[in-house]
Design a protein around this nucleic acid. Sequence first.
DNA 1: ATACAGTATTCTGTATGCAGAAGTCGAGGT
DNA 2: ACCTCGACTTCTGCATACAGAATACTGTAT
Lengths: 248, 248
Amino acid sequence: MPSTELPQQTSARRIDRPVPLRERVYQAMQELIISRQLAPGQHLVESELAEMLGVSRQPIREALQLLNSEGWVDLRPGYGAFVHAPTDAEVDQLLAVRAVLEGESARLAALNADADGIARLRKLCAEGEAALASDDVDGMVAANAELHRCVTELSGNRVLLDFVSQVDRRVRWYYTPIARNRGARSWEEHGRLVDAIERGDAETAAQIMREHTERTRHSYLEQRAENPEPDEQPAQVRTRRRRAAPRV
Amino acid sequence: MPSTELPQQTSARRIDRPVPLRERVYQAMQELIISRQLAPGQHLVESELAEMLGVSRQPIREALQLLNSEGWVDLRPGYGAFVHAPTDAEVDQLLAVRAVLEGESARLAALNADADGIARLRKLCAEGEAALASDDVDGMVAANAELHRCVTELSGNRVLLDFVSQVDRRVRWYYTPIARNRGARSWEEHGRLVDAIERGDAETAAQIMREHTERTRHSYLEQRAENPEPDEQPAQVRTRRRRAAPRV
DNA sequence: ATACAGTATTCTGTATGCAGAAGTCGAGGT
DNA sequence: ACCTCGACTTCTGCATACAGAATACTGTAT
């Protein structure tokens, strides 16, 4: 098994305290899942992860708890942890939830945003369009995520922000590998969204955001239909653990 | 410290497997928090919990992870776990989120509910009204929770159900100790809600549910204003751990 | 060759042990 | 009386150890 580095303790926390291993493990594993190095359905053996990341099983277990509660892995008591394998229905439902939550975010943002907030939105829009113009896919994805996050922040509802962040990360995991090509249309919508927020037109903002997310949803499902997960036996749930290396 | 029983392993799981200690600890601690035996802001010392529940620290830690991710306790790395002390603003925001999510539940339920589902809703309405008539507060609270849950189930969106369940439990924790007296009005609203769902009138159902939750929110804030948490120093965040029993 | 039973091994769940950080108490100085 | 410094205690975070359950392998009988 390839040994993987834990993220270095980059940015200091509020107070200067060493980031616990369990959090770094959590981060690292989330990356591994998003990047598909840990494939959906795969059985995660604690001791292997421990060796791979150079820590003991305890922080691994604690990280798995967290990943489980956020829907990244499934914990089956007595059987172990498995990378969550979302069904199409689940992705669809998750996007529906996101549409509602982000619609509400936009509505509240329109009611609460100040000039400074609007400026931040404009800046992100500009960045996104620049990325689009120069065909910088990663830049677009990043600007897109930032914009959505910013809108939610401007809603002034911290609880909402927590929920949306959680949903967003999962959606991005499901979504990223396929549909990256609705660029131009998407940024035009974003522009209209910011306009509505600036006018304080809450209902229009909410509407635009909901429809925006709904379109994401439909384009996801279409692409998914044409293009089922390449290296995945559809609908096969792996229940067996694979055998470890045979003895000599 | 009083020793507390872990819940007996009552109902069998899908497969007949012993429920892990961590889950029973999770359940037990959630109960202790809801019942205020563990007070908001209180520092939760792992070893004390372990002794109290008759297990080692490991399952305690894992349960704390879960409780943290659902907002019941705050985990401050290096400092320990504290029972979450929600601010008024947070409760308000959480109720706002619930209004949106349950509004969507109602909308989808109106589109998807079958005759059987409607019957279940009617039954719960009847139970609630019966409880109201006989002044059975606990019965009313239970029927109310069941009704809301049932609506969300009928939405057919499982992801939504997960989110709503989570939000609901937290709301009930915040809310239960105070406002229990909007009975009659509340059940009348429920009746109209079920009517709308039965008609398949999605927008009206959503509207009623949103307004219903909004009223809950306002009544919460009113009561809270008149009646701040009795045995709690307002706005005082406990950062110090209390000293353990002095040695002999 | 297939089915079955028994054995070996892996893996999870839980407990225990240990080092270092955080907090507390008390003595001494101002 | 109040502040400061230092030793002591407690607590968290992590590692290791152990028991039991579940799985995979192997040999034998049919």
